[in-house]
């Protein structure tokens, strides 16, 4: 375990590559139920991509990471239920909405034949465009865009699927100067003030599902949290300045995946070379500054990297038990009408 968490040394003797813990997916059974129903009653053989919504929240337990979760409501409503859907059924503090896209194929062969590299690149390009257009600063959730490919076998009630969490690759990679619990990096007064500010941000319905933010700490230890778009206006001399994000990861020595595209935004839009980042994590639903991390990273990308026309490489297909394979789940026990009839008899 400890071996996995040690950042590795590569290239330059003194540079530690900043390594990010991959995002992990979790699909609720309800998602597959609704997808099956939509496939039968609405989509038919249409293979057009479907916009979907994933949900995540800051890590809230020191031993378990949070996941990008798909629920029934991640999909569009079924035709018969459209009138029943209320706006309030969208995100909340435990379900921050992230935009995604679903490619559901009609056959298993079609599923395996999908050009995964192109699909990943297409989604990464959306992130890149949103960074350059400024949209990512207005609506930061687009930085964590995701992709899902699937084949729903409605004869056997099994579902083949694979997630990707596209991340723009910094070249060369960012290097880590240090990473430590936020409670150690901050003074006691600063930590108290930042805790209060985070709890306020998380309890306000206007900001609770905004997963990226700025932290400014005044010389008098007073911490304030701002939206990414307020970057220009909160640059003050003598203030400590952190780039914060909801970190789904629980590991003590690595930030989670969402930081990757935030760093891409920072070095594309604001051309910073030294970045202080804040991995926001919670303890029982409240700011947990001993679980949260603060780190310093150095970014020195090549000049061409920032060129809008040259999209950087992207990575992010999810591993399945360490392998590069799709996942498969059988729900015959809860969906197959024959089996349900037998078990009810």
């Amino acid at each position: 375990m400890s071996k996995l968490q040690q950042p590795t040394m590569t290239g330059n003797e003194n540079a530690t590559v900043l390594q990010f813990a991959p995002f992990q997916s979790a699909v609720d059974e309800g998602f597959w139920h609704r997808l099956s129903s939509l496939k039968l009653n609405k989509f038919g053989i249409d293979e057009s991509p479907i916009p979907i919504t994933g949900f995540y929240a800051p890590c809230s337990h020191s031993q378990v990471s949070n996941h990008l979760t798909l629920l029934a409501e991640s999909l569009p409503p079924e035709p018969s239920e459209q009138s029943l859907v209320t706006m309030s059924s969208r995100g909340n503090r435990n379900k921050c909405s992230i935009p995604g896209i679903l490619y559901n194929t009609n056959t298993l062969e079609g599923f395996h034949a999908l050009d995964k590299q192109s699909l990943l690149k297409a989604e990464a390009e959306k992130v890149w465009e949103d960074i350059h257009s400024g949209k990512a600063e207005e609506d930061s959730a687009v930085l964590s865009r995701f992709l899902l490919i699937s084949f729903a076998d409605l004869k056997k009630w099994s579902f083949h699927y694979w997630f990707a969490f596209p991340a723009l690759v910094l070249d060369p990679p960012a290097t880590l100067v240090y990473l430590r619990p936020a409670s150690q990096w901050l003074s006691l007064e600063e930590a108290e003030s930042l805790s209060a500010a985070c709890n306020e941000w998380r309890s306000s319905s206007a900001t609770t599902d905004v997963p990226f933010f700025l932290v400014s700490i005044a010389p008098n230890s007073h911490a304030t949290i701002k939206h990414l778009k307020d970057w220009e206006s909160c640059q003050h001399d003598g203030h400590k300045f952190l780039f914060g994000f909801y970190d789904p990861c629980h590991l003590p020595n690595n930030p989670g995946w969402p930081l990757r595209n935030l760093l891409a935004l920072i070095c594309s839009r604001w051309t910073l070379e030294k970045v202080y980042f804040f991995c926001y994590r919670e303890n029982r639903g409240f700011a947990g500054l001993s679980l949260s991390l603060i780190g310093e990273a150095l970014i020195s990308v090549s000049q061409g990297w920032k060129d809008h026309q040259h999209m950087p490489n992207a990575v992010g297909w999810e591993f399945n038990r360490g392998k590069k394979v799709p996942r498969c789940i059988s729900l015959a026990k809860s969906m197959d009408p024959t089996r349900l009839a037998i078990s009810a008899a």
């Binding site: 375990m1 996995l4 968490q5 590795t8 590569t10 590559v17 900043l18 390594q19 990010f20 813990a21 991959p22 992990q24 031993q63 378990v64 990471s65 995964k116 590299q117 690759v169 910094l170 990679p173 960012a174 990861c249 629980h250 590991l251 690595n254 990757r260 490489n313 990575v315 297909w317 591993f319 038990r321 360490g322 590069k324």
Partner: peptide, 17 residues
């Protein structure tokens, strides 16, 4: 396809202690 990316933390899966 999957990427030899030095910035991706390699672990079989991320489990709790």
């Amino acid at each position: 396809l999957i990427e030899t990316d030095p910035a991706t933390l390699q672990s079989t899966y991320l489990v709790a202690h």
